[in-house]
Nucleic acid binder design. Structure first.
Lengths: 129, 129
DNA sequence: CAGCATCCTATTGGATACTG
DNA sequence: CAGTATCCAATAGGATGCTG
């Protein structure tokens, strides 16, 4: 059966889909979400503003950027700071909690980058049969 | 523009959606996929058979397990070994390439586990407003 | 045991347009 | 600049049933 009748109406925002039981699984999904990884890794070097993030993370839409940012801020992994100015200035940075998770993610990212070609080669070899 | 006309018929299996340009992004998505993380981390200790993986990774369906496994094998991150026996015996293990990526993933997983409660607390604090 | 095929829904996420 | 809202398409992924 499952939620054949559309569920009992629980309608949370994002990523809380079915983690009511295992919190770790929820955090993992937030953190390894398509844009979450890239955002967390990008913020390791220094705090960044919205448009800086958008520029650094290729292919992200404003919608997904703000949506993911909101989620990670709620999770306490990212801190949002607003400086009162005429052109609004908002910057995002890692909290201690966020930094602890961003570190292995950044390591992963580096390793993925240096090995992407090998994976491509493996795929071609595999498909050759 | 984009794929308004349904694309030119390119129909690959999984995860290759729109990574024709950036291989690293594709690898990242495979590796941080919902079940990919868990599979890679689970195989760090030792090789496991299909049913062992299914047992260790709570909530995974056979479909997603075999689908993700197939993808990771194609990527050259996981090695699939078949022992000829009357009840078929297939075991999965990390390749050197897979191990390099599984390590930071496992670190991430550990950190997520120990910090899940803090995230939950942050969410509650955030929602209180 | 170790899977694959089919059917179907929920979630992801892109495009576009608008706001403080 | 820093978003939000709406609409819509693609995909992830669960349920179920079958096979070597």
């Amino acid at each position: 059966m499952g939620r054949s009748a559309g569920g009992t109406g629980v309608r949370r925002s994002m990523g809380d889909a079915f983690h009511s039981d295992c919190p770790a699984r929820m955090v993992l999904d937030h953190v390894t979400s398509k844009w979450g990884v890239l955002i967390l890794a990008a913020l390791r070097k220094r705090d960044l503003r919205f448009f800086e993030l958008r520029g650094r993370i290729e292919g992200v839409s404003e919608k997904m950027l703000s949506q993911t940012l909101r989620m990670l801020v709620r999770d306490g992994l990212i801190r949002r700071t607003v400086s009162p100015a005429s052109p609004p200035q908002v910057s995002y940075g890692l909290t201690a909690l966020g930094a602890a998770l961003a570190e292995p993610l950044d390591t992963l990212l580096e390793r993925v980058r240096t090995r992407a070609r090998q994976v491509l080669a493996a795929q071609r070899a595999h498909d050759a049969r």
